[in-house]
Nucleic acid binder design. Sequence first.
DNA 1: TAATGTGCTATACTAAAGTATATCGGTATA
DNA 2: TATACCGATATACTTTAGTATAGCACATTA
Lengths: 121, 121
Amino acid sequence: MKEIQLDFNDIKECPHSFVMAVNDTMNVLTGKWKLPIMATLIFGKKRFKEIEREIPRITPRMLSKELRELELNGIVKRTVHDSIPVSIEYEFTTSGRAIKHVLDAMVEWGLEHRQAVLNRH
Amino acid sequence: MKEIQLDFNDIKECPHSFVMAVNDTMNVLTGKWKLPIMATLIFGKKRFKEIEREIPRITPRMLSKELRELELNGIVKRTVHDSIPVSIEYEFTTSGRAIKHVLDAMVEWGLEHRQAVLNRH
DNA sequence: TAATGTGCTATACTAAAGTATATCGGTATA
DNA sequence: TATACCGATATACTTTAGTATAGCACATTA
């Protein structure tokens, strides 16, 4: 996982902590399968194969990779149940679930912007 | 400019228009220099060289490319003043400026999330 | 015993994003 | 006349992101 380092740092008038915050958020959301994966977890815990089945063209490699990134970023919690056989569950952390507010803002702006663009033609 | 097609479509429970809205927003924000460029335009119009000077390591190729994308996406307006020599100015569209609400949500979540992660250790 | 499900990883590849460097036609300035 | 600023574009390259395909250890079901 390569952290995108937006070269924002040198731009005045914008607190450094804000820049870092936006970078953090972008790093969480960037990646082709991040949002589909999060969408599957909205209504609760899911197992690897469940997520895989719900996202049509994803490969296990990508699912594994993106889940690991989400876990490292503290968005998703991975729990190993030591039943036989072991089952493994993925779910949002509290902080991870809160990213919904960002998505809500994106939906709102996206809808408005699409209208604005259409109205110009 | 390649449109990221998040394969979100097949996931039930989420209106298709919402998915498109989030995709639109992500397409606008994705790209290493998009946010730095937008940051320079917050306080008003700027010329190509002004933006270039304010963003330390950007190359003219990338600035040109990202500005063109922002223009195509209806975020930024490009105005050619036919003075001699011509000067060209870039500024936010109304709809473009409104993306600030999304950035605000990202700042808020980013700050809270960073705290949440720190508190766990 | 064979086939199937679970939760992955390894290797090799293609495609997309970003960088480096040079150049261009016009205008203004020394 | 030489130099520099403006707003870029062209070509070639490297790096990162994503895909394709195979396989593995273990357990269950037929």
